[in-house]
């Protein structure tokens, strides 16, 4: 009986500790996330803030680029296995302080609870670590963030690297196949719409960039400046 009570007590204490470490004390997640929970969103912002600081020469900082949202969109689109791997990766680095504590007081706390200086120092340590596995962890983490950050329309537009504004081609494929998810009866094009040709005028290197990128750049950069 007593042993049973002790085991239940220990399990409860372990559950409590795990809950505190994994879930408690995070600010609510920003609205509109489909997958990331509040702890993951906080971790993403904590990395973004130091990996892509404000004033780093691009249109938006890591925080302004709202990486929890872009990473969330990426996760939604991935197969379950890759989605689980990326979430594990986020969780692993959030709690890596348990094995690689930061030097500041409370250095075994969650990554997202550390000061900015300790966070970037820890990321730097990971990227140079003698264990290949830890370097690999950092490479993977960095990739997830770079894709979201540099892929933000405002950042690409600011670097003149947004896709061109292009007149969409209408080929035989557009006459034969519906848009993904549609029925063949929904095909909107007929032979009179065909516009592909053996020769088309090349784009200009400084030609107009995709309007949606320009629009997002205008609104987001304006918001970030305010």
């Amino acid at each position: 009986m007593l042993t049973g009570l002790i085991i239940v007590g220990l399990l409860m204490a372990a559950g409590f500790a795990l809950h505190r470490r994994g879930y408690a004390g995070y600010a609510p997640a920003p609205a509109g996330l489909a997958i990331l929970h509040r702890g993951e969103a906080a971790f993403v912002d904590a990395v973004a803030e130091v990996l892509f600081p404000a004033g780093g020469g691009l249109a938006l900082s890591g925080i302004d680029a709202q990486l929890p949202h872009s990473i969330d969109r990426h996760l939604v689109a991935l197969p379950w296995r890759q989605r689980a791997q990326i979430r594990l990766l986020l969780g692993a680095v959030e709690h890596i302080t348990l094995v690689l504590p930061s030097e500041e007081p409370g250095g075994r706390g969650r990554f997202s609870s550390l000061s900015a200086a300790s966070r970037i120092a820890l990321l730097d340590r990971l990227s140079r670590h003698r264990f290949g596995l830890l370097r690999l962890l950092m490479t993977a983490l960095r990739s997830v963030f770079v894709l979201g950050y540099l892929g933000h329309p405002a950042n690409l537009h600011g670097l003149s690297l947004a896709p061109f504004e292009i007149e969409l081609g209408v080929s035989e494929a557009e006459l034969l196949f519906p848009r993904v998810g549609g029925l063949v009866s929904s095909i909107a094009f007929g032979p009179e719409d065909l516009n592909v040709a053996e020769y088309r005028e090349p784009l200009r290197p400084d030609g107009e960039r995709h309007r949606a990128y320009a629009r997002t750049a205008a609104t987001q950069t304006g918001r970030a400046k305010r």
């Binding site: 130091v50 990996l51 892509f52 600081p53 004033g55 780093g56 020469g57 691009l58 970037i120 990321l123 730097d124 990227s127 960095r142 990739s143 770079v146 894709l147 950050y149 540099l150 892929g151 950042n155 690409l156 670097l159 003149s160 690297l161």
Partner: peptide
């Protein structure tokens, strides 16, 4: 390729990394 994919191989963190992005053009 799309620039974010090319930039995956860029070294550095923080402002050093951002400076490399800024060199993409």
């Amino acid at each position: 390729a799309p620039p974010p994919l090319l930039a995956l191989r860029f070294p550095g963190l923080g402002e050093e990394l951002q400076a490399r992005f800024a060199e993409l053009p």
